[in-house]
Nucleic acid binder design. Structure first.
Length: 563
RNA sequence: CGGGGCGUAGCGCAGUCCGGCUAGCGCACCUGCUUUGGGAGCAGGGGGUCGGAGGUUCGAAUCCUCUCGCCCCGACCA
């Protein structure tokens, strides 16, 4: 491809709205343009990257026996109503009516449609298993689109769905995807982790996310180097660092005038936060719940929500009414008929907590002796905590979610009556899994993980081109120009994807642009070197330059992995 | 949805607090000459009515009201 014929609008200055590195570079290097919040146009270079990623997705999905289909983006409300998600999902779903007044929506994912198809067509266990996938546009009216291409309202997704006759079958389909995903992300040149994740409103029991570490990531993941435990903080367990206590502390009240927060009391009494019990009153659907945490820990709302259902913080008047205490001086002792959920770290130790009377805290408080509670992990895991499996110190990293896999079970098949007859002629619901990958996120994560001050450094497999030929001063030197074209034809003939910068521009501009665009290898043809029979092969990442004979270029590229 | 910030030429910005001549600067763009291995130099030139609407005023980019858009933090993220 000739650069002069290709639309690659590079810019020197970064548009001010971009903050994520990948976003800045994609704008500067002419890969994308923004149409509106969360809506992006892919320019020729950007689309080539997406196309290459999609090719890898197709190859690996086909390799596990998955079959590509294409589903409508515009969908009737009916199936969504049958699964209940029409009502569970709020503003995030784009809804509209057709001319006949029928409720429709734009697909944000395709469980409903895929399951509907299965319900119509699958009759017998003999037709199972099936894996169907598509690479299709999804639409979600995101509360806050952000970070360029990372969180958009319209995006491409590879989504596949498995249909099995048994739980064992589901596990196999899940494993196939797990392995395929590892191959896909490895081929795309990404550093990534597979972590345990929340099933969220997808339902089902087991789920994993594939996470590409990056400072622009929206998720925190918890990692144990010792045993390999890896989980999203959404679900990660941990053992907070042990604290030491004075076992002799008497059970008595201390005067703490106007000291309400753990921080205030901690400073006032000169006791570290881990010697305190934080008591938080919440109002759940079933009524008030008192949550207990160690003073240095944070309440993990999602973990608690799994126990109590949705809740909200109690207001000050409610606290007085329900507990008879002023906010800031709540303790877990002596409450009748209120559900108390405590983090297990509080099982041992001697604590300070609110005395249930104004301006007083109580010392010497022990679990089981002074209060009873149901024990559940309700704290946020943090770096430095102990691993829940092996006890070693945990690490936290920010990461971009590039893929996820869910064991759905029968949630959708039951709702949409997708059933089959088993070997003994009995009707059973199909057992499903669903599996997603965001191609744009792969591209963004690749840039986040592979760039330098000068621009993008594409991993070989997803670079828009394999090599860029940069003739310098071609306009004045027919030799340079014809050498460039000879090389171009030669490489092209081999199936190498070549970008030739045939623009009549100064050397500096071409070299800067080449670094920005980020094709992993450059062949620079200059007059002086050419007179001696050489061109330069430059590695974008290392900046290492080798003088080679033009005839050696195809082999040299192959050796460098640039095919 | 809560909090914050920003909309002035294609891009990046100054001017706004404290209204006052033809609204500036850099980059990009056009013309000419010179230059040509890391975003060239000189000279000349084109382009904006200040996000939009309404108001205050002799006078509004600047003050007031409303509104639209974009970004960031949080909530949310099926």
């Amino acid at each position: 491809m000739r650069l002069s014929k290709m639309f690659i609008p590079t810019v020197r200055e970064t548009p001010s709205e971009a903050t994520a590195e990948s976003h800045k570079l994609m704008l500067r290097a002419g890969y994308v343009r923004q149409l509106a919040a969360g809506l992006y146009i892919y320019l020729p270079l950007g689309w080539r990257v997406i196309t290459r990623i999609n090719r890898i997705l197709r190859e690996e999905m086909d390799a596990i026996g998955a079959q590509e289909v294409s589903m409508p983006v515009l969908q009737p409300a009916e199936q969504w109503q049958q699964t209940g998600r029409w009502f569970d999902i709020k503003e995030e779903m784009f809804r509209l009516k057709d001319r006949g007044g029928r409720d429709m929506c734009l697909g944000m994912t395709h469980e409903e449609t895929m399951t509907w198809l299965a319900s119509r067509e699958i009759r017998s266990y003999r037709q199972l298993p099936q894996i169907w996938y598509q690479i299709q546009t999804k639409l979600r009216d995101e509360a806050r689109p952000k970070s360029g291409i990372l969180r958009t309202r319209e995006f491409l997704m590879k989504d596949s769905y498995s249909f099995d006759a048994s739980v064992e079958g589901l596990r196999e389909s899940y494993k196939l995807h797990e392995d395929a995903y590892h191959r896909i992300f490895t081929r795309c040149g990404l550093k990534f982790y597979q972590v345990e994740s929340d099933t969220g409103m997808m339902g089902g029991a087991i789920a994993h996310e594939f996470m590409a570490p990056s400072p622009s990531g929206e998720d925190d993941i918890i990692l144990c180097a010792a045993c390999g435990y890896q989980a999203n903080v959404e679900v990660a367990g941990s053992v907070p660092p042990a604290a030491s206590f004075d076992e002799e502390t008497p059970y008595e009240d201390v005067h703490t005038p106007e000291k309400r927060t753990v921080e205030e009391v901690s400073r006032f009494l000169k006791e570290p936060p881990e010697h305190f019990i934080k008591s938080i009153l919440l109002i759940a659907g079933e009524g008030p719940v008192l949550a207990l945490l160690r003073g240095d820990q944070q309440l993990h709302e999602k973990k608690l929500q799994r126990l109590t259902g949705p809740f909200r913080a109690a207001g000050k008047p409610e606290i007085r009414e329900i507990l008879g205490v002023e906010a800031g001086f709540i303790g877990p002792m002596d409450h009748e008929g209120i559900r108390i959920i405590a983090d297990p770290v509080l099982r041992t130790g001697v604590y300070i907590t609110g005395a249930n009377k104004p301006h007083h805290h109580r010392k010497g408080v022990r679990a089981a002796v002074n209060f009873q509670a149901a024990w559940h992990d309700i704290h946020v895991a943090a770096g430095g905590d102990g691993c829940p499996r092996c006890g070693a110190a945990l690490r936290v990293e920010k990461a971009i979610e590039i893929g996820n896999i869910f064991q759905l079970g029968t949630k959708y098949s039951k709702a949409l009556n997708a059933v089959f007859l088993n070997e003994s002629g009995a009707e059973e619901p199909i057992i499903m899994g669903s599996y997603g990958i965001g191609p744009a996120r792969i591209a963004a994560a690749a840039i986040e993980q592979n760039h330098d001050r000068d621009g993008i450094i594409w991993p070989d497999a997803i670079s828009p081109f394999d090599v860029e030929i940069i003739p310098l001063g071609a306009g004045d030197s027919p030799e340079v120009e014809s050498a460039a074209w000879d090389l171009y034809r030669e490489l092209d003939k081999n199936g190498t994807e070549v970008l030739l910068d045939d623009r009549d521009l100064r050397a500096g501009v071409k070299l800067k642009d080449a670094d920005l665009i980020g094709i992993p290898r450059q062949i620079i043809i200059g007059e002086r070197n050419l007179k001696e029979g050489f061109v330069e092969l430059k590695d974008r990442r290392t900046k290492e330059v080798r003088r080679i004979r033009p005839a050696m270029a195809p082999d040299a590229l192959k050796a460098a992995g640039g095919e």
